[in-house]
């Protein structure tokens, strides 16, 4: 029995296409539920758009505008709003669904976060080359006004930092959500470690506090992921301004 069985994936519908394992696991189902929730959230938020917004439209407007306020100075282009809003919503709703007992959020699986991070890496490179031209983009790795002796250390570091970004991006999100669930399990299992009924109130109060903290972490981590992706994409989009 694995101690992480409560957050490990289980195959719901076995599926194999051309030798590739495409089984539908419980995490994928949760991801679909999250996407469905996002669609409902924005559909009902923008159903009856009026100048004087009702409560729900107000919430959606605040949600989008707060996100965009933080990202606009980096990206400088309104066309990126749907992408970053979608990224933020996907991570946020997945994280929040993990707060329901028995539901495994996709973000505790490193495959999910690594996929997002690799996509961000590819988008960063493609957009940078498309916007600035291949020569100008790769010349941006070479800082000006630096002596040659230091340059041979700086260029590999700059190139390496591009490849380290997806690792730190994916492990940060994965480890934060994973650690939250591991701490929840530890606090609940204190009851079974001490084998006493007297531990139950303390354990439950601790669980409540950790859960509240987890909701906070869900928002912060979704925002950090989006903010850092915006920073990476923005810095390769607008080479002169950074």
């Amino acid at each position: 029995m694995n101690i992480f069985s409560h957050i490990s994936e289980r195959i719901v519908v076995p599926l194999k296409i051309a030798g590739i394992d495409l089984s539908i696991t419980n995490e994928i189902l949760v991801m679909w539920i999250a996407i469905f929730c996002i669609i409902l959230f924005f559909y009902f938020g923008s159903k009856k758009v009026s100048i004087v917004p009702n409560r729900f439209q107000n919430l959606v407007e605040m949600y989008v505008l707060t996100l965009w306020e933080n990202i606009e100075p980096i990206v400088l282009n309104r066309a990126w709003l749907p992408f970053f809003c979608g990224l933020f919503s996907l991570i946020l709703f997945c994280n929040l669904l993990g707060g329901i007992p028995g539901i495994v959020p996709p973000t505790v699986n490193i495959n999910f976060t690594a996929t997002l991070a690799v996509c961000i890496f590819l988008i960063t490179q493609i957009v940078g080359i498309k916007q600035n031209g291949i020569r100008k983009y790769f010349l941006s790795f070479v800082p000006s006004n630096v002596p040659f002796g230091i340059l041979i250390f700086i260029i590999p570091m700059e190139v390496l930092s591009q490849f380290i970004r997806p690792f730190s991006l994916s492990i940060r999100l994965f480890a934060n959500i994973f650690a939250g669930h591991a701490v929840t399990l530890t606090i609940i299992s204190l009851i079974f470690i001490f084998k006493s009924y007297w531990v139950i109130p303390g354990s439950l109060i601790g669980h409540l506090l950790i859960s509240v903290f987890e909701i906070f972490v869900a928002f912060i981590q979704a925002f950090i992921f989006t903010f850092l992706s915006a920073f990476y994409i923005g810095s390769s989009l607008n080479l002169e301004k950074h």
Partner: peptide, 16 residues
């Protein structure tokens, strides 16, 4: 808070 999450992430790398 944003800076704290960056620092926290380093401890979480060690956790992994």
């Amino acid at each position: 808070i944003i800076a704290i999450t960056f620092i926290e992430a380093i401890a979480l790398y060690a956790l992994v």
